[in-house]
Design a protein around this nucleic acid. Structure first.
Lengths: 241, 241
DNA sequence: GAGTGGTCTAGACCACGAT
DNA sequence: TCGTGGTCTAGACCACTCT
């Protein structure tokens, strides 16, 4: 299990950064210095530095050198799926509505489309152990010719739906935004989720974009608060390479 | 602005994956095939493939080849800081308590420490425009000799605090976990946040670990729901290299 | 012009998987 | 054994920054 040299180089520098021997903003060794120090070639040195760059420890400036980065404290990896949240999984769903509609002014605004374009609207209820746990609404651009198969959308997450229904999208090239907040449910949501006391809900709004940055989907999911615990962790970029 | 060859190789393969010519699980070209196809050396081909691997499009199996990855639909990049959330920033804080305590059984359990170890406890209130918006509690391992300067912790995020107070930690090597959920406030929180109607709160629990996986900090922040909107987006790993 | 990183070549040898 | 990827060498030439 000998550690490759490029890994050793990366680890040595990483340790100096962790121990504050190199501080954010500081220049570190040049490639040539490292070549000499480790009696190796530039390719190997560069590979080590590339690891550190990918892990967010350093950055490069052409013609100047390598510098220690300010650590990115506030970025986390979040796991989110309408259907699953590490603690419980939706085990049943009910399709409340699948419709092709003309957009109201709010949707026209959001999708930046003309008013004669059509929108697919899907409303669902999610269940766990026969208890309604989330009320879900989705809007997607409608493009002729793609059949909407109920079976396929009952358990689909929003990205999966869009990859099926909207043309020229694959799960690889959808950009996604989430907005997450707590609120008190409105009457409709209260009814669907059978909330009678003053329990609150977690709302997750989704926006999906194609690779050109055009909005192709809008969604909101309202979770009964007991059934929505979101988990996130700091990303320690693992060395994929 | 000529595109480097390794980028071209990566883009060509990426396009085939986006267009579903290569599906998840499929083997793609071998390094040697690509060398021939692009009349180039293995190093260049490997650099292109490395890009794709870092962006999550493909994975490698030694001795077998490169394969298309299942797209990671449910992973997002989340921005979280107690002090800032893209919509509003805490502009004032009040230190309710800074104390060194002996852990109760719950803390002993959580930190996996013996009962004579000491814990630093910090409680704060956060304000925006003179309105209390969050109630914040932190627990950290106490190590002798490090002074706790009130000025330094009033506006500090949890990772910043720990990097100051706990030995051998830097902002680079702290692992962080978050648990996020909506709930109704308890009486204490209601009083601090001056909530009289039935408004709900967003709770964010933080766990901090050192590089060996040992827990070094526990925190919970309770936000008035209007002041906590969390934002996340799909991570399109930018080519750092 | 000297020093830095950015791209690329044409090899070598090793480790792993399938057969 | 053969084809695959994994590590590494010793160069080349180019582009950028600083002085």
């Amino acid at each position: 299990m000998k550690k490759p040299l490029y890994q050793q180089i990366a680890d040595d520098i990483k340790e100096k950064i962790n121990n504050n021997e190199f501080k954010p903003g500081d220049p570190i060794y040049s490639e040539n210095e490292l070549c000499k120090a480790y009696h190796t070639s530039r390719a190997t040195v560069r590979r080590g530095l590339s690891l550190l760059a990918n892990e967010g420890y350093i950055y490069v400036v052409h013609g100047k050198g390598y510098f220690v980065k300010e650590p990115d404290q506030n970025t986390y990896k979040l796991y989110y799926s309408e259907m699953d949240n590490l603690f419980n999984s939706v085990d049943n769903t009910k399709l409340l509505e699948v419709n092709i509609i003309l957009p109201d002014s709010k949707l026209i605004e959001s999708f930046k489309i003309s008013k004669n374009k059509k929108i697919v609207m899907i409303r669902r209820l999610f269940f766990i152990d026969d208890e309604p746990v989330a009320y879900d609404k989705k809007y997607m651009l409608y493009l002729k010719g793609i059949p909407i198969v109920e079976k396929e959308i009952r358990y689909a997450t929003f990205p999966e739906m869009v990859a099926r229904i909207v043309k020229n999208t694959s799960l690889f090239n959808i950009k996604k935004h989430l907005m997450i907040y707590a609120q008190m449910p409105d009457e409709v949501t209260k009814n669907y989720l059978k909330i009678d006391d003053d329990q609150c809900i977690m709302t997750v709004e989704q926006k999906l974009f194609n690779k050109n940055g055009k909005i192709i989907g809008l969604g909101e999911t309202h979770f009964k608060s007991d059934y929505c615990r979101l988990y996130a962790e700091s990303e320690f970029a693992d060395d994929k390479w």
